[in-house]
Design a binder for these strands. Structure first.
Length: 442
RNA sequence: GUGAUUGUAGCUCAGUUGGUUAGAGCACCGGUUUGUGGUUCCGGGGGUCGCGGGUUCGAAUCCCGUCUUUCACCCCA
């Protein structure tokens, strides 16, 4: 039998996991510094928690888990006979796999509302699953790293999340632009253009601007039934680069002006501490997710051509569907896989990743092998990451193994003497144990 | 979900209009050589040609289905 893995999934090699952990650790450290606490939620949620939260498209992409036992016995026979999968599903599947971290978090907040003291700041790094067709940078299983604050309307949160983006990406050595906009500004635009009811359609179209160009955007707006005049107004607003200029256009929209005011306030906070990366107002930023209601954020790499490597925004009504009203939240997400790709392309990972072996011990004779085992334990007692080739073998073979394992140092034990070989700078010297330990511990 | 695309050894790939026993490089194993750090040379194991049907005297090769890969759309991270 030939082994395979399901489509859209991947194995991670040791080096890949170490690199991924490096990214996770960098993000985690910043989250913790800013006062966020970790939570985890189950891989599976009740299907009722998940369905209807991501739109029709999203429901289709949910992985459903078959009930255990003789599930067909309890199946909806009518739906089964009609071959109606949609109807049948609810009778044979009660659970589904996590589609993102935000909805499970909303569920968590509502379920634990009595024990949470608000404002509640949490981070969460876990895989999610989508039954999507795989393509470039898109998988059926992938990690999300989220940080959210719920229970506060303060715009300080938005400023803080921008600072987190700034700090994490500086720590990773990446040069990025953090784009900001506000849903209310987009609503204001729709209002001024007289197409408030088509606001959602409008945002998804203008979100594609940098991908398909202004002409196509125009075309698509017209295609979805927006009048020539309204399209003209939208297109003109899209050229605006500053908030002050935008204020002129949106002055008749209360909603729009509120958006501008919010962004100004965020900037007021940000002005108090300069960021390393560029923070830029971008009116074309819309973001697909429709639960956003206020500020929206997106991060793009300045050095590598790649979609967004992070995004987020404020949502006012997320917990409402679970019965908890008036809990405003704002959050961000890091696209771990894409950050990984950008880091790889720029060769930005540290050379000595945490978890790599420091030194391999080798011996060609049985007597020396026992001596080596003694040394091995002493090195380990000194907290040096080391390994011993498990049996005496040919020198060539063991050296080859050392090279394959990417070990920077090898100690050859011969006639009770220790020879330390530097695999990187190709030198070697005979040392006693004390100097060995001294040299290898950092 | 729509439209393309891919599948041959563990990996990267050759394979003629359909025609003997399907090949190479790398990797692996054994030996050889190198004054003992990726060298040289020799040998070895390893493949139901993604899977299932069909056409044919004969299929890796042609046809159909299915799964998988990659990519675009949709949507999204």
């Amino acid at each position: 039998m030939k082994p395979t893995i399901p489509k859209g999934t991947r194995d991670f090699t040791p080096i890949q996991v170490l690199k991924r952990n490096y990214i996770f650790d960098t993000i985690k450290k910043v989250f913790i510094k800013y006062g966020y606490m970790p939570i985890e939620t189950p891989t599976m949620e009740n299907l009722s928690t998940l369905t209807g939260k991501y739109g029709e498209e999203g429901d289709r992409l949910l992985f459903k888990v078959l009930n255990s036992g003789d599930y067909l016995k309890k199946a909806n026979k009518e739906a089964l006979g009609d071959l109606n999968s949609n109807k049948l599903t609810s009778s044979i599947s009660k659970k589904g796999m996590r589609y993102d971290l935000t909805v499970p978090f909303a569920r968590y907040v509502v379920m634990h509302q009595n024990e949470i003291s608000f404002p509640f700041k949490r981070y969460q790094i876990q895989p999610v699953w989508r039954a999507d067709r795989p393509q470039k940078g898109r998988y059926q299983e992938f990690y999300q790293c989220d940080a959210d604050i719920v229970g506060s309307k303060s715009l300080m949160s938005e400023a803080e999340l921008i600072q987190i983006y700034d700090e994490v990406f500086s720590n990773l050595g990446l040069n990025v632009t953090i784009k900001v906009n506000n849903r209310k500004i987009l609503e204001g635009m729709a209002e001024i253009a007289g197409i408030s009811e088509k606001m959602v359609a409008m945002t998804t179209i203008i979100d594609k601007l940098d991908k398909i160009g202004i002409e196509k955007v125009k075309e698509e707006l017209l295609k979805c039934g927006i009048s020539e005049k309204s399209v003209q107004i939208i297109i003109e607003s899209l050229q605006i680069k500053t908030l002050t200029a935008l204020g002129e256009v949106l002055k008749d929209s209360e909603r729009g002006m509120k958006g501008i005011e919010e962004l100004n306030l965020v900037h007021e906070y940000l002005d108090l501490k300069s960021t390393t990366n560029k923070v830029e107002f971008d009116i074309t930023l819309a973001r697909g997710l429709n639960y956003y209601t206020g500020c929206i954020l997106e991060v793009v790499s300045n050095d590598v051509e790649m979609g967004s490597i992070g995004g987020g925004g404020r949502y006012d009504n997320l917990t409402e569907i679970f019965g908890l009203k008036d809990v405003s939240g704002v959050g961000i997400s890091f696209g771990a896989a894409r950050i990984f790709d950008v880091m790889t392309e720029l060769d930005n990972f540290p050379k000595d990743l945490e978890g790599l072996l420091t030194v391999l011990l080798i011996s060609e004779s049985k007597v020396d092998h026992l001596e080596a085992f003694k040394l091995l334990n002493q090195l380990r007692a000194a907290n040096i990451s080391c390994d011993l080739y498990p049996e005496p073998a040919k020198y060539k073979r063991m050296i080859k193994y050392a090279i394959n394992r990417n070990v920077p140092f090898v100690i050859n034990i011969e006639n009770g003497e220790y020879t330390l070989k530097d695999m990187v700078n190709s030198g070697q010297e005979k040392l006693n144990m004390e100097t060995l330990i001294q040299k290898l511990s950092k």
